[in-house]
């Protein structure tokens, strides 16, 4: 199964434009913060809040604004789990690795998703269709192992169910395309 959907896929220039707009916005918002290194985390948080991830270019800009090295910004940002470095995908896959899910083989489910999409947890596919995240506990340990696909909780996960989820996505996409064609 290929992971691109012709038609609604963003082209490279769209992405470029989006990134340029983001950088412009960050440039404007940075001027609101005092040039003090104590502001590093609040700045990173505000960028993530607005753009939902920290791009490399954004971290570079923060470094030059605060007059610290980009490495320093990177070190701080990677330390905290709250920061992500890849834009979220249109479909967000969260795999629970809390105690109950871990015992029930949640890591196997995570690996299934990772291998299927060819990305690691915390990453996003190149077409920004899917992103995988590992989460600590989603609060329904009785259904372990659990995955949350967008906002749907999938309990008693199995490798075969991973396949099923992607099949569902494909069917949905095909239906959308048919609807579009018939309009």
């Amino acid at each position: 199964m290929a992971f691109h959907n012709d038609g609604i896929d963003m082209t490279a220039s769209d992405l470029d434009q989006e990134e340029r707009a983001m950088i412009q916005e960050i440039k404007r918002s940075l001027s609101k913060f005092k040039k003090h290194r104590g502001n590093l985390i609040p700045i990173l948080q505000s960028i993530q809040e607005k753009h939902s991830y920290l791009a490399s270019a954004a971290m570079e800009m923060v470094a030059s604004h605060l007059d610290i090295s980009p490495s320093e910004v990177y070190g701080v940002a990677t330390f905290y789990n709250q920061f992500r470095f890849h834009p979220p995908g249109r479909n967000q896959i969260k795999v629970c690795l809390g105690t109950a899910c871990h015992v029930a083989g949640g890591d196997i489910i995570l690996e299934n998703f990772e291998r299927k999409l060819g990305i690691k947890d915390g990453e996003t596919t190149a077409d920004r269709e899917y992103s995988i995240e590992r989460v600590a506990c989603v609060g329904c340990c009785a259904l372990a192992p659990v995955a949350v696909i967008n906002d749907n909780v999938q309990g008693y996960m199995q490798p075969s169910k991973v396949e099923g989820i992607f099949l569902q996505f494909q069917i949905e996409r095909e239906r959308e395309e048919r609807d579009k064609a018939s309009e």
């Binding site: 610290i68 090295s69 490495s71 320093e72 990177y74 990677t78």
Partner: peptide, 10 residues
């Protein structure tokens, strides 16, 4: 002045 090496992750 601007260090290049850092600890990353945790």
């Amino acid at each position: 002045e601007h260090n290049l090496l850092t600890f990353a992750q945790r």
